[in-house]
Every structure is written in C-alpha cells, then in structure tokens.
Design a protein around this nucleic acid. Sequence first.
DNA 1: ATATATGCAAAGCTTTTGCATCGAA
DNA 2: TTCGATGCAAAAGCTTTGCATATAT
Lengths: 150, 150
Amino acid sequence: MLMTNNEEVIEELKRIVKQKGLKYTEQREIVLDILINAEEHLSAEDVYNQIKTKYPESNIGIATVYRALGFLEEVNLITSIAFGTEGKKYESNAKSHHDHLICTSCGKIVEFLDDEIEKRQERIAKKNKFKITSHSMQLYGTCKDCQESK
Amino acid sequence: MLMTNNEEVIEELKRIVKQKGLKYTEQREIVLDILINAEEHLSAEDVYNQIKTKYPESNIGIATVYRALGFLEEVNLITSIAFGTEGKKYESNAKSHHDHLICTSCGKIVEFLDDEIEKRQERIAKKNKFKITSHSMQLYGTCKDCQESK
DNA sequence: ATATATGCAAAGCTTTTGCATCGAA
DNA sequence: TTCGATGCAAAAGCTTTGCATATAT
C-alpha cells in the first residue's frame, strides 16, 4: 500500500474501521491527523496538547488519546519508538520510510534512508523465507553538539 | 575499546568509577553482571527480580537498580531500547551484536548479521557526525511456516 | 436499537526523589 | 572522616480501566 497524501491515510483508516466492524470517530481521525502533520515524534501527551490547541472545540480526554494511539499502532497506521530517558513517542507511517539516528544525550533524532541497506534487508528476509511487513532500525549515539559539550 | 569477556567489563566499570571520583559498589557491579549474563533484553524490574534470585543475600532496592541502570547507560556500558508495546529494556554493550528477524505470527526470532549493513550504518553515522554507541534493527514479518498455515 | 467509543476519575504501574544511614576511599 | 551510594517509603509520572453516557451504524 502506498499512501501519497493525508486524505489517503484517512481513507485507509475508514476502510480498516469498517472492515473490522468498528465505529468511525472524529477522535481517532484527529489523533491520526495530528501525527500525519507532526514535524517530529510526539508523546501521547504531546498529541493531547496539540489537539487541545488545534481542535479546541474537541473535548477529547487523555484516555481516548491513549486508546486511539494503541489502535492506530495496532492497525499499522502509526509506529511508536522510545529511547533514552524520554518516553514512548509516535509517528505516522504515512511519512516515507526512514530509519533513525538518535542522540542518547539530547534526544535529537535524524532521519535517514539508505537504499543499499533496504535492499539487503529484503535479501536477508528472502534468504530466511520471511515475508517482511515492516522494519525499524535505530542507531544510538552522541550527536556532534553533545560530543563537544563534554 | 574491545571487551572480550566479563571480567574485562567489570574492570572497565572500576576504571570509570575511579576516574570519575565516584565509589565502587557491589550493587552497580551486580546490575552489570546480570545484564552481561542475560540471554535477552531485561526491564528494570527484570533486573531487580534476577538479582533477588541470583544474589538473595543482596538487599538491593529497586531505586538502586534504576540508579545503577541510569549510571551504566550514561557511561555506555549498557544500552536501553524500547519498541512497540514493550517498555524500556536494557542490554549489556559487551554482548556480540546482531539484528533480528521477527515473525509477528508465531513470535519466532532469527538472529542475523550483515557486514555490509554494519559498514553502511557506520558511514551514515559519520556523515551525520554522530558517534555511535549501539544500534538495533528489527525486520518484522511472517516466517515460512506461518505463511503456509494461512 | 445496539454495541462500540468516549470522558472522567480512580486505580495501577513505573520511575524518581527526600532523607537518614551506610560504607568506600 | 568525608561525601557519594543505598534502602526505604513517599511522591510524581505515565498509562490503563471501570462505568455511565454518548454516538456511529
């Protein structure tokens, strides 16, 4: 499935919800919308706060945010990662695939993509007769600024 | 720094503690020992429980485990990662590195290592001026058996 | 009409912190 | 002897859950 824009992701959410016999709610759409348009990875509370700012008329509760995040991750529309001292953070899967360089000192995240690595991952999967659905890769270390400030 | 065995890692801990003008305690050594000998990634509570089993005479508190884990991660003897629904887990940096192919259907895990990927990771880190301390990569998918039983 | 989803508040976990005491150097 | 480290318990954070109500279908 290739999703080129936000509407398409929202449509995908509708399709999944319908297929599962669940109900389509504005809250789930809002949570997804926030993540689709986020510049960076967001914690559950970040999402909650952004909703209060961007959709002040929505009286969403933090519990609903958590439930929506869990649901969206389960159906593969978003992904969570957590590192260092910071808690779990989420990002939309609609963003083009990339891996992460994470500074364990200041928390900075640099996204990158390497075609050769992607190809090799496929090859390894094939060799082991796995059918890959997703993958994640993180390089942990210290960014330039943090190395200097030591 | 290359560490080929456990004693060497413990020595490294002693060196670091001394260099920082801190005090060497059995508790920090025990926490490190647990992680060095762990078969898998452990949560703070896992570590605490294993200590109670392996060193029943040690009256360590959970707060000390957290403090030791934070310290050991800070000085780069261990690494924490967290993904998906699981919480934060720790592993010793002395263990030989490998990546994972994970079957999301039956849970089977295949470990692998690809030199070319490792090299490229280094190159990417260097390009971004990061000093890598560790990394993790997971390929999620369906193994052969689970594909067939569908 | 029916069953899922929500909001709220309470409950449950996980992790951190204050403080008196202990112990390594 | 000194000052960092520990254990305990309390506090603080973060996430989940129970329940009555609201709402999508």
